[in-house]
Design a protein around this nucleic acid. Structure first.
Lengths: 334, 334
DNA sequence: ACTGTTACCGATACCGGTATCGATACCATC
DNA sequence: GATGGTATCGATACCGGTATCGGTAACAGT
């Protein structure tokens, strides 16, 4: 009652294992009649090939390992969908792992993934600890680091500069005439990219002799509810802000909802600014300012790169793919 | 420059391959000194085991294949996160695939997944075509079908009755005094569970001698933007509705935003009802009615089940796990 | 009739691990 | 000193495929 093996299919078809293998793979050295016999036998036994054996034997898995930090907002699922779409039809398969923004867990997951001998690996960010980076390096497969560009990649790099994204947003908001800034973030110790955006933002503020008038941070991960709560708190103590920069759109959306409930006109009194350009942010009854991160595009690019990197000579491929997020929803730019 | 094999580690440590294998796995038949030598050698060569070989040899992969239809809203990512969390520390690894609500693609993906000889497989829904169901059956591994309960499971079943969820929502809305219902959905031909909710909802309406006064459907997949657009259209031709049932919370949220922009008071004039109980829906400045689907819980249950099913005798395990979504946001029930 | 091609197929050796069984050394026991 | 038990290790045979090379048959050319 076990699953049939190639050997059994071959026996059923009255040929050798090797011939059966060739027939099923559509190799050329098989006569039409033999091929038909084998295909037929495989059909009868409802044979499903064993990729463990295939991969062990052929020394290539066509697996692409993907490690992302989170699945709790829509950003990384969209990246995964992009990767998955780019891989479709190539015979390659993505395998996902979630690190929960935990470097130790990330290390363990990457190690685990590598033991499956993937043909390429896609990891989020550039800030892996040295030990992890070394492990990636010695894996002898294409390593594609995504989302972030601020740092030194192991190999390939697809993403955007979050420092620059923060700077650009700050410049846009200053150009829109805002002066009294608040910042609301969450889990910045773990979401390093959000931290980089904040640093970039602050840098530009300082250049104009400004800074954050008020800050609120929480160790929990970002969510609409958290953004709403922190915003209410902040506005209670600092009602004279004219702009709040959030760690991302989820938090910003919460901020907008808080303003709506408090009856504070946005963007007139307070301009809400986030990051990501989520569909949600686009559909909101009141637009918020945001930087559209090309998440899907990053995923697709990374997936395409994985395809190419396993077939093409690595040296001939572009190493860095840089995207610049478009800023939308800043009133006077519209 | 290839990756070192167990053989090489053994040579480095001056023992046989078999002894090295035992030492690395922490088996008992190895002296402390030998074990140390092997561990040391493995460390020096930065050896990473080859799970292909391990799994092929030991005949168990500890892989859990997971097939979901979509990654474009937060629902399935949350399910995946639940599965992933439940598997953590068990030595089992989840492998995800996305079917895009396409039965043919689903069949291909499942076939592909099965070729990796997973220890268990989790698929979404109960409505796989016969061919697919047969393939699952003959895989001789635990099959866990999630999300839906309305149908005949192959093996294990974790989810909720969407028909009943639709009925319950209809009853709640009727009890709240609503009478003129609209329905707005999307891609019902593909998202069968949304269709089942609609059917259940309509069944209850009919029992009260009612029905949908107006319907809007689109072949595109659900999104906030689509919900917003369809709602605007519907309210233009049928402004006298007092309740709109949506295929899910994304669509409903779009509906709410449309009402806000049109200045229609909700829930006073129009009660917006969705499905899922997304965090978003909870945080909205105006609450919408929704059924909280236990997505994370379904994922965790399925993951836990996968763990147990591979170690425990299948016959001794509960086959069906039924969840009943809680309805929130219906005014007079609060 | 003999040789050379071509088309097709099978035997064998892997891929990198683990299961299993047997071998060896050492010690205690009678 | 012979016997038996225990601890430790290695040889061998797989797991289920594929790569590689060699063999056979059929046919064409001379």
């Amino acid at each position: 009652m076990r699953k049939p093996t190639l050997e059994e299919v071959a026996a059923e078809a009255g040929v050798s294992k090797m011939t059966a293998s060739r027939a099923l793979r559509g190799a050329s050295d098989v006569s039409k009649e033999t091929r038909a016999k084998v295909l037929n036998a495989a059909e009868r036994l409802s044979y499903v090939g064993n990729r463990l054996a295939l991969s062990l034997s052929s020394q290539r898995t066509n697996l692409v390992a993907v490690v992302v930090p989170s699945m709790s907002n829509i950003v990384f699922p969209e990246v995964l969908a992009g990767i998955s779409a780019a891989l479709e039809g190539s015979g390659m398969q993505a395998v996902f792992g979630i690190s929960d923004y935990d470097p130790a867990k990330e290390h363990a997951i990457i190690r685990d993934m590598l033991s499956w001998q993937p043909s390429a690996i896609i990891v989020t960010g550039l800030d892996q600890p040295g030990e992890t980076a070394r492990m990636l390096q010695s894996a002898a497969i294409p390593v594609i680091q995504i989302m972030d560009l601020d740092g030194t990649p192991v190999d390939f790099n697809v993403g955007l500069s979050h420092g620059r994204a923060g700077e650009d947003m700050a410049r846009a908001l200053l150009a829109a005439g805002r002066k009294r800034f608040g910042y609301i973030g969450s889990a910045l110790d773990r979401d390093l990219r959000a931290g980089k955006r904040k640093v970039g933002f602050e840098r530009v503020l300082r250049e104009s002799g400004l800074g954050f008038v008020e800050q609120q941070q929480d160790s929990a991960f970002s969510s609409i509810a958290l953004g709403k709560r922190l915003t209410s708190t902040m506005l209670a103590t600092a009602p004279d802000l004219d702009c709040i920069y959030y760690s991302n759109d989820d938090m910003a959306t919460g901020g907008l909802f808080a303003c709506m409930e408090l009856g504070i006109p946005t963007p007139e009194n307070i301009l809400i600014a986030g990051f990501n350009g989520l569909d949600l942010a686009q559909a909101l009854p009141v637009r918020i300012a945001t930087s559209r991160s090309p998440r899907r595009m990053i995923g697709e690019t990374a997936g395409k790169l994985a395809r190419e990197a396993v077939t093409t000579e690595a040296a001939s491929l572009q190493k860095v793919f840089s995207f610049i997020p478009e800023i939308t929803g800043v009133p006077h730019l519209q």
